[in-house]
């Protein structure tokens, strides 16, 4: 004998818990994420640590960075465009020119980054930042 069970009503899956979870995830990602677009500039180049360099720089240009953030090359204070033009001319003349930046400790980070940026735009590939330490 076959017993026919009455068909049970199809259970509806409630969507409300799913919406709750999604809202919690949404708020979590909105609160914990940062939305700044960040780039990087290498501060220590991998080749710098190795002894000896394959190519000897032909000359060195030293840029002093004053506490006011103005770069000084060969005793002349330069704005960003003039510095870029000067460095581009030097690189066109001698591509292996090394550029050394000697910043004042009181200069701001933005000033150093701007000079490094300008040098990179001028095609400088050998760039170093010097730091003077107080004598003990």
């Amino acid at each position: 004998m076959m017993i026919n069970r009455p068909a049970r009503p199809r259970a509806l899956i409630s969507l409300v818990p799913m919406i709750d979870v999604m809202l919690i995830l949404l708020v979590f990602f909105m609160v914990t994420s940062t939305y700044l677009n960040l780039d990087m500039i290498p501060a220590v180049k991998p080749s710098e640590g190795t002894a000896g360099s394959p190519q000897t720089p032909a000359g060195t240009l030293m840029i002093r960075l004053g506490a006011d953030g103005v770069p000084v090359l060969r005793g002349t204070a330069l704005d960003r465009e003039t510095l870029r033009t000067t460095l581009s001319a030097a690189m066109a003349e001698e591509p292996l020119t090394q550029v050394v930046i000697l910043p004042s400790g009181a200069a701001q980070t933005q000033a150093l980054i701007t000079v490094m940026d300008t040098a990179a735009l001028a095609g400088v590939t050998r760039l170093r930042v010097l730091r003077l330490e107080a004598a003990p």
């Binding site: 700044l36 960040l38 780039d39 500039i41 501060a43 220590v44 640590g49 980054i113």
Partner: peptide, 14 residues
């Protein structure tokens, strides 16, 4: 660098 970090970068914004 002295501690041995070979990859030190400065963070900037574009």
């Amino acid at each position: 660098e002295a501690l041995g970090f070979r990859n030190v970068v400065l963070v900037v914004t574009p």
